[in-house]
Computed example of a mutant assay.
Amino acid sequence: MLLAEKLYYFTHGLCCMFFLYASIYLLYGKKTPRLRMVLGGVVVFWFLLEIKDLLLYSSATVRNTYFSTLLLMIDMLAVPACSFYLFELLSTGWMNWKRAFALSSFFILCLLGYAVTASDSWLWILEVYATLYSFAVIIILCFAVRRYNRYVRENYSYTEHLNVRWLRQVTFLMFICLSVWMYSCLRSSWIADSIYYFSSLLLWACILYYSEMQEVVPIADNIKMKKLFSKELTEEKKEEFVLNENLIQALHKSLKEDELFLNPRITLADLAMTIGTNRTYLSTYLNTYLNTSFYDYINSYRMEKVCQLLSDPTCTATMNEIAETCGFNSLSTFRRSFVKEYGMSFAEYRRQMNKNS
């Protein structure tokens, strides 16, 4: 047996075990979060795809054009399956069994059409439709991610484990994985198939890693087609904003005197409840009247606290200690805010202060 063939069997077996373990890990437990269940279901499907590939070990299956094409068309069901998780991630509660069937129905129809007629036309139709479906998903995600990020900045004072910047890395890895898969379909090669299995392992390892840390953002209407090209989630006509001086004073007191911004996980709803108003009024005040987001507004108070600490010449606190003391949820957010405020990194600032002293 060739070394390349042995590598193929090893990587395929590794994928089978990986997806089996990941499925059990994600779906184990009675109170599994919804997003985790959707991801678990997608991983189970990928495990079944890997098990299906065991049929390729039979030389009779490989030589039979009908069965080999049928297996290839089954692989294309992975396209809608992956979109299920992405849609649920960006719009909590959007995915259900009815929508899952609707999104995958044409894929299934083409598969059944080929199974009955053995006509290659069904394969061609499915390939074209899968390409169009992928482009449509990419367009939807571009707008959905923009609205998602806007919502996070308007409602949370931190973005770590809330933002979905990691989707860029995953998209790049998915492009590599699909490219290798397409090459292996056009030109049979033990090495190409092994690289595909390795790339799919890397892809799903990244997805599982980031998903494990991802916090669910309660956005329900982010994947509605009628709002596809809109910048905001709601299209409701906003009432004319009337400035309430008492509420504004209560807002300033809660931040200036009570220093609620020191809570690293404070949200717009928390602050609105504290000052006795609703999140819609507070959001309108920040976005329309002050022309800022809740995220930037709270971090501006945190940076004021940082300035107070650093203005003390006896301050010897480390960057970690200052960030934690001033309410920053992570060092990455602190670094970005610090550079924006001072025009230099924290280390550069300390070196300059030491020279001046």
Rank of each mutant, 00 (worst) to 15 (best):
K237H: 08
E215A: 02
I266V: 09
D270F: 02
A250D: 06
I223W: 13
L202V: 11
N246K: 13
L247E: 02
P218C: 05
I322A: 12
N278T: 15
Y295G: 04
Q249R: 15
T267E: 07
T280I: 06
L262W: 09
I298N: 02
M273F: 05
N246F: 10
D312L: 11
L262G: 04
R302I: 12
N244P: 05
S194Q: 09
E236P: 11
L268G: 01
Y295P: 07
N244E: 05
Y295R: 10
N222T: 07
F261I: 06
E259S: 09
E257F: 03
G276E: 01
T234W: 13
C307A: 08
Y196C: 05
S200R: 13
L310S: 02
N299T: 11
H252C: 01
S300F: 10
N278W: 15
Y196K: 11
C307M: 05
L290C: 14
V216I: 08
D258C: 01
A250G: 04
T234K: 13
L309P: 14
T277S: 04
A192H: 15
D258V: 00
I223M: 09
L255N: 06
L271S: 03
K256C: 02
F198N: 02
E236D: 08
K231I: 00
T234E: 11
L247G: 03
D258L: 01
T234Y: 15
I266N: 06
S211E: 00
T288A: 07
L271Q: 05
A220Y: 15
T284F: 05
L243A: 01
C315Q: 15
D193A: 03
L203V: 10
N320V: 12
F294L: 04
T274C: 05
E304S: 09
N291C: 05
S283P: 12
V306R: 13
A220K: 13
L208P: 09
T274D: 07
L255Q: 09
A317F: 15
T325R: 14
C206N: 11
N246M: 01
Y295L: 07
K227S: 00
L262H: 10
L255D: 05
S311E: 10
S300M: 13
K238P: 14
T280Q: 07
R265L: 12
S332G: 05
T234C: 04
Y301C: 00
Y197V: 00
R335Q: 06
R335G: 00
A192C: 10
I223H: 03
S230L: 01
C307S: 09
I298W: 09
K227Y: 03
R335K: 06
L243V: 03
I219C: 00
P264Q: 09
V216W: 08
E321M: 04
S254P: 06
K231F: 03
M319T: 11
L260E: 01
S293K: 12
E245M: 03
A317T: 07
S332E: 11
I207V: 14
L247V: 04
L271A: 00
S332A: 10
N222A: 07
T284R: 13
T333Y: 02
A250C: 02
S330K: 02
Y301H: 12
L228W: 00
V217C: 02
K238H: 15
K227P: 00
